[in-house]
Simulated scan of single mutants.
Amino acid sequence: MEDEIVYIGQMEGSHPDSVLTYVGGRNPGHCTSEGKLLLAFHEAANIKRILANGLTPYTPKTVTEPGILLKR
Rank of each mutant, 00 (worst) to 15 (best):
I50Q: 07
K36T: 05
Y22A: 14
N27G: 12
L69W: 01
P28A: 10
M1D: 13
V23D: 07
F41Q: 00
T21I: 15
G24C: 00
V19N: 09
C31L: 02
Y58P: 06
E65N: 06
I47Y: 00
T56P: 10
K71A: 11
Y58K: 07
S33L: 10
K36Q: 13
F41M: 07
G25Y: 13
N53W: 09
E2W: 14
E2P: 15
V23A: 00
P16T: 08
P57N: 02
G29A: 12
P28I: 13
E4I: 04
Y58E: 14
D3Y: 06
P16G: 02
K36R: 15
G67I: 10
Q10K: 15
P28K: 09
G13S: 04
M1I: 14
I5Q: 00
I5D: 04
I50G: 05
K48L: 01
K48W: 09
K61E: 11
C31E: 08
T59L: 01
S33A: 08
P28S: 11
T56R: 07
M11I: 05
V23F: 03
N53L: 04
G13T: 11
E34K: 08
G9E: 06
L39F: 14
I47D: 00
Y7N: 03
R49C: 06
V6Y: 03
D17V: 10
E43H: 03
P66V: 06
N53Y: 06
V6F: 05
H15C: 09
P66H: 04
Y22E: 12
D17P: 10
G25E: 10
S14A: 15
N27E: 08
A52V: 05
I47S: 04
L39I: 09
F41W: 02
R49L: 05
E43K: 01
A52T: 11
P28C: 14
S33I: 11
K71E: 10
E43P: 03
K71M: 08
A52R: 08
N27F: 14
Y58G: 04
L51H: 03
T64F: 11
G9I: 03
A40I: 00
H42A: 12
R49V: 08
R26D: 08
K61G: 07
C31M: 14
T32R: 10
T62C: 14
T56Y: 13
I50N: 01
T21N: 12
E65V: 05
G67F: 11
P16L: 07
I68P: 04
I68D: 13
Y22K: 12
A52P: 04
R49K: 15
I47N: 06
